[in-house]
């Protein structure tokens, strides 16, 4: 599923993550994750994989995900990603 709107969830508080999902800049890009995180060395790959799998499970294919992480646990990341997905689907025309 492609999207036209943008969905955002989360805050920049410590232990949270702000997730912004927007339409891809071109066709067939797949899910592109831009992750900023203080724990990128320890958990960067894990968090990126988690976001990609959550987004694709929700049926999105070509989207851009900006994730501004402040040390969130997986449960938090999941909640924020799912909410952001729901919000960008709502924006669908």
């Amino acid at each position: 599923m492609a999207i036209v709107g943008t969905g955002q969830a989360g805050t920049l508080e410590s232990s949270d993550i702000m997730v912004t999902i927007s339409p891809a800049e071109g066709a067939k890009t797949g899910i592109v994750v831009d992750l900023q995180s203080p724990v990128v060395k320890q958990y960067g790959r894990h968090i990126e994989n988690l976001i990609v799998s959550l987004v694709s499970e929700q049926g999105l294919t070509d989207v851009k995900v900006f994730a501004n992480d402040r040390g969130a646990l997986d449960c938090t990341i999941k909640a924020r990603v799912l909410t952001a997905v729901a919000r960008c689907k709502k924006d669908r025309i």
Binding site: V39, K41, Q42, Y43, R45, H46, L73, D74
Partner: peptide
């Protein structure tokens, strides 16, 4: 809670 961290290269 966190998963096992990768070590610092």
């Amino acid at each position: 809670l966190t998963g096992k961290p990768e070590s610092i290269p």
